[in-house]
Every structure is written in structure tokens, then in C-alpha cells.
Amino acid sequence: MLNDIMVLLQQCLQVDDISDWDDTTPLIGAIAEFDSMAVVTVITQLEESYGFIIDDDEISADVFETIGSLTSFVELKC
């Protein structure tokens, strides 16, 4: 799952090299490409890829703190 999320993030953010990414890599405020448009793109891609609906109340900074927190969120939703 972690790997799938990293690939999805890589595609959404169009980052070339993710070799130094792991579950502790911070997202918001750390990756320059991770702006509000990117957040929405990631949410939309997650919904389309995994077939669940993310309620807008679930969109919080905690979820997007690190790659690990985002992965845990997706695991809970699946």
C-alpha cells in the first residue's frame, strides 16, 4: 500500500526522483509541489483509484502530514 501511495503521489506531483521517500517523509509544507491544487488532485485520484468517497470533513492537515499518515488514512478507508 505504501508503495502504491508513493507512486500515486509521484504522478500527481510530477516528481522525478522519489528514491529518498519513505513513510516518514513530510508532505504539507515540506514538498514544494504540495499545494492546495495538489491536495485536491491527490484526493480525487485516491477516490478514483480505490473507489471510496472521501468526506470533506475528513480532509485535514493531519492526514496530509506525512506519506505514512496518508497511507494509514487510505488503509482505514479501504
Partner: peptide, 17 residues
């Protein structure tokens, strides 16, 4: 959602849809 995402990143205020 762009607005929700922007608010989430910039402020503490928790706006809802």
C-alpha cells in the same frame, strides 16, 4: 475542495463544505 484544502494548509480554522 480547493478552498478547503487551501484553508487547511494556511489557517487553523476548520471550514466545512
Amino acid at each position: 475542495r480547493l478552498r478547503l484544502a487551501a484553508d487547511m494548509m494556511n489557517t487553523q480554522a476548520k471550514l466545512t463544505m
